[in-house]
Design a protein around this nucleic acid. Structure first.
Lengths: 149, 149
DNA sequence: ATTCATTGTGTAGCTACTTCACTATGCAAC
DNA sequence: GTTGCATAGTGAAGTAGCTACACAATGAAT
């Protein structure tokens, strides 16, 4: 045991605070673009996958297929994606970016890059790498814990 | 500029991953106790404030008074708090822990302490302090940014 | 041709959030 | 002490995000 419990608690509190503020910051960015968090997440995943049936989106997002129907409904209404027929499977639709959607995702990606640079760009190299190593440690612990139960 | 953009992006991705997993872990803990995230947050704040009128809770939680009505409704139904008359202001109610509520908050606090120790307890002192310093940097940047836009 | 799996959606319901309108009470000023 | 404004809480209505269950249409395999 090298870290005192109170210090560990302080660190966790700070981490949670960072989380809260970061979420808030990103949420505001989404909102300016007419996006909700869930719809943004869907766009983001869609950018990775390319045009996809809703089932694939559901899996990638970790939510039910029914929920994806609703999210895509919203994205269609607001003009970010369209539902195209799946060539070769008439049951499925291919969720596909509109120009606006593709454009928006591109800006989101840039925005995230900018944020990363804002957060870490000025940080001394040594501190930065220690920070990243610390986060790797934390990630490992969490993943081990979640695996257990 | 001491940190490369790609490295900064990696770091941000890791941070967001930590966030996601941590949230999921905590949410599961809440669920086991019969609590939703919003209700847990309310309990947590109530523990800091002591018995409070809903208005105070709303302010502390950063949500509307109307929303607090709903959250407290839920907490009353599930037996964590009661609405007591405010002595000296007949408009207000004092949201007050039941035994179950007080007990639960206590366990939540212990659980958070345990989590902190799990996450950071084994970390070498030097890495830990660098990690905390890094988070302080990040916090500062975010707060500066949020203040602006 | 029948059977079974899969895709998407209707229905219904919960939590969490908002705004707007309203009641009841408190409080201060005339 | 009444008038008038502020404050505490809630009803009504709506949005977003999620769930489970039921079902129609299609696909795939025997």
């Amino acid at each position: 045991m090298t870290t005192k419990p109170e210090a560990a608690q302080d660190a966790l509190n700070k981490l949670l605070q960072v989380v809260t503020l970061l979420n808030e910051d990103m949420r505001q960015d989404f909102e300016r673009r007419g996006l909700t968090p869930a719809r943004t997440h869907a766009l983001w995943v869609l950018a990775e996958l390319g045009p996809s049936p809703q089932r694939a989106l559901a899996q990638a997002l970790g939510v039910t297929a029914r929920n994806v129907t609703g999210i895509v409904d919203g994205l269609v209404e607001t003009g970010f994606v369209t539902r195209e027929p799946h060539p070769g499977d008439r049951r499925a639709t291919l969720v596909t970016f509109t120009d606006k959607g593709a454009h928006t995702v591109h800006h989101l990606q840039e925005s995230q890059r900018t944020l990363a640079v804002q957060l870490f760009g000025q940080m001394p190299a040594e501190r930065f790498s220690a920070f990243v190593n610390g986060m790797d440690d934390v990630l490992q612990v969490i993943q081990r814990e979640l695996a257990k139960g």
